[in-house]
Design a protein around this nucleic acid. Structure first.
Lengths: 244, 244
DNA sequence: GAGTGGTCTAGACCACTGT
DNA sequence: CAGTGGTCTAGACCACTCT
């Protein structure tokens, strides 16, 4: 007759409402950029007070799932170029200057996932993936060499599509063309030596220290949707991280 | 008769109250670890509702300035070893294992600030600084070589004090011994080649790529209190960064 | 002017901590 | 038990946007 190990698990009403709304966003009830129902509408719908709904939506806004505009409404977050650059691009010039990145595609091919890819992307054995290589330039100089790996199941025919559009930022592209929404990314940083190929591409000497950024991008349920390994020349740039 | 460029600047009541309370914490009215007055006490004091005070304190908690415990009260945040490691130490083992860092002091000396130090620490020309060098070990192996620079004015006789205590984490030490509270740190990461000295200390070959972490730690008014340059061997470790 | 999010209030009840 | 923070409500007013 011992009490249950995990007590009845009281969940605040606002947390439940938040989960319900997030589920509906995930299900695609409102597309990125579209307005959500107003707080009062939600309040009536879920039979709660406006303040409770407000708290639910506030948490969603804190997690960048939605964006609020006073007088206008609340909108499903979208991967604009602005957001991609401010939230998901942490490389800055040492002198504080601002430069716009461009990108040069290298290759795009379909293959079977390696063990490492399966593990990082949470795929089953033998699943297909698409591997994209590209160079990102800042100020017309090659700065980053990237290998991007995505599950083929999520992004069918992405190679063919890339021929047409050649987007600079991938996440807005994933969103509009495939309905895949990246909401968070986990990065592991290391210092490694540039190999021959990277050296040539980045126009540096073989063995030059480069910053490796190993990123897994995930969507709503922390489900991985992209694995990306970047090698960055940090001679005149740095990666910015703020700790609280 | 044009309207003022910056409109009257309406500040919400909760923001004003927050600022007032933060000012009082900064002034030392309550020490780290000590309880603040309750929300209802603050509400009465500032002639506001409990909900408004609550919102002010919630923001302070979000910024890790205070810690709340249900049923107990709200306390000024303190640099426990836990917090130092979880919030200000981002290096982890690749295999996910956990290892406790220890540290070996190297040198501690007083000198005049270089131009770089003046700039990073916001010091006047010719100000005195204390430069501390140390090695941090994980699993008994040297992993990080650090140069720590602090203004002498803030930390008088720190070299002598360090002889006695030799703390592993500096921020709790700054807090208890000097009343200096680090609340945020800004880090710039680069990949560089280990020089002779670093190579010897870290037991690696000269020229091995190491991760440079260039950190400025600040206190309440974003005032710099420490500049730290770490060189990390990332052969079996990585720096973790989460993007939203 | 109607509708949106943002602030503020006053009061209620709950969960938890101390005594 | 009283006191704390945590949740929830109902209602008011403000700042802003759009029509």
């Amino acid at each position: 007759m011992t009490p249950p190990p995990t007590p009845p698990a009281f969940r605040p009403l606002f947390a439940q409402i938040k989960e319900l709304i997030v589920d509906r966003i995930r299900a695609g009830e409102w597309q990125p950029g579209e307005p959500l129902p107003s707080e009062t509408e939600f309040a009536e719908f879920y039979q709660a007070s406006q303040g409770t709904v407000r708290k639910a939506i506030t948490e969603m806004a804190d997690e960048n799932l939605v964006v609020r505009f006073r007088g206008k409404g609340t909108f499903v977050a979208s991967h604009t170029r602005e957001r991609a650059l401010s939230h998901f691009f942490k490389l800055f010039r040492d002198d504080g200057g601002k430069d716009l990145p461009s990108s040069r595609p290298f290759s795009c091919r379909r293959q079977k996932a390696t063990r490492a890819m399966e593990e990082r992307l949470g795929l089953e054995r033998g699943a297909g993936v698409v591997v994209i290589e590209r160079v990102r330039l800042l100020d017309e100089r090659p700065l980053i060499f990237e290998i991007v790996v995505v599950p083929e199941a999520l992004f069918p025919d992405v190679c063919a599509s890339l021929q047409d559009s050649l987007p600079n930022e991938f996440y807005p592209y994933y969103e509009t063309k495939y309905g895949v929404r990246v909401i968070r990314a986990i990065e592991q940083l290391r210092s490694v030596a540039a190999d021959e190929r990277e050296a040539e591409i980045l126009e540096i000497a073989v063995g030059t220290p480069v910053l490796e950024i190993d990123r897994v991008a995930v969507t709503y349920d922390d489900k991985p949707v992209e694995w990306r390994r970047s090698r960055c020349n940090t001679r005149d740039h740095h990666y910015l991280s703020v700790l609280n």
